[in-house]
């Protein structure tokens, strides 16, 4: 299992670095741009915070984008949410089916390692890569605050990154299950799942009738504006996340152990 895990990490290292540095540096650049936009932001902040449902959807009614914390929540929070969700989806949805898509399954499964061990190694590598992604981006965002000589709201920031990590795991678990039952690369589907989940969250925040259903989606409990403004985490959303993550992983083991492996 150790060797399969290390091989997965090595093979996905390039993707991890490209995605984490791209998303992290985009966030860092956004933070660094704040200074040059600070003057304009003050004028825009009032207008943005009074746009009703639109302001609610993007968190501009709870935090002022005239502050770095508010600006980080509305701008970088969105970039990180989308980027990390897509990364988790892409990594997880290809990690099992890629063996069959790339015809390497016969090589791997002719070695004395059980399907459960292969799945465990792959699940662990998705977990490790998602964690590394979160840490790399987190360091870059923290550096942004340091460059700007602004105090990082450590508690809220750590909570936000932690919730994002859980959201990534939830999306990753769903994609991991899909990967276990599919013999083909479903990258498009993975990205689609991440984007639809994000869209569901935006619509849920704009349409009043859908607000009660928000907790179903993975973005509900990881909203940057809510977390950075000190609001309570949506517990129902977190419970759904734990249930979905566990179900996704258990289903992957269940189905993968019972199916024929393609050549």
């Amino acid at each position: 299992m150790r060797n399969v895990y290390l091989k997965e990490m090595k093979m996905n290292l390039k993707a991890l670095l490209i995605w984490s540095l791209t998303v992290g540096l985009m966030g860092l650049c956004c933070i660094l741009l704040y200074k040059s936009m600070q003057g304009d932001m003050k004028n825009m902040a009032d207008a943005f915070s009074n746009m009703g449902a639109f302001s609610d959807a993007f968190g501009m009614s709870t935090l002022s984008i005239a502050t770095l914390k508010g600006y980080f929540a509305t701008e970088v929070g969105t970039v990180h949410s989308l980027g990390s969700a897509m990364f988790a989806a892409i990594v997880a949805i290809n990690i099992i089916s890629g063996e069959e898509e790339g015809h390497t399954g016969e090589f791997l499964y002719s070695l004395p390692v059980s399907r459960k061990s292969v799945l465990s190694a792959k699940a662990l590598s998705v977990l490790s890569m998602t964690a590394a992604f979160t840490v790399i981006c987190g360091i870059l965002y923290a550096l942004g605050f340091a460059f700007m000589n602004e105090e990082l709201p450590v508690k809220e920031f750590m909570l936000f990154m932690g919730c994002q990590f859980v959201m990534n795991l939830e999306i990753g678990a769903v994609c991991f299950w899909i990967s276990s039952i599919s013999g083909k690369n479903r990258m498009g589907l993975g990205i689609g799942i991440a984007l639809i989940a994000y869209l569901f969250d935006i619509i849920g925040r704009v349409v009043p009738d859908l607000k009660d259903c928000l907790f179903v989606g993975p973005f509900s409990y990881a909203n940057a504006s809510e977390i950075l403004s000190g609001q309570d985490i949506r517990t129902a959303g977190l419970i759904v996340a734990v249930v979905v993550t566990v179900l996704g992983i258990v289903a992957a083991y269940y189905f993968y152990d019972r199916r024929d492996l393609a050549a």
Binding site: M11, T104, E106, S110, L111, P112
Partner: peptide
């Protein structure tokens, strides 16, 4: 005894595919 069997087997598939990188 699937795993124990594979410890004692050398298999060569008809299509020899490995990790390209």
């Amino acid at each position: 005894d699937h795993v124990n069997i594979l410890k004692n087997v050398g298999y060569m598939p008809s299509e020899a595919w490995f990790y390209n990188s």
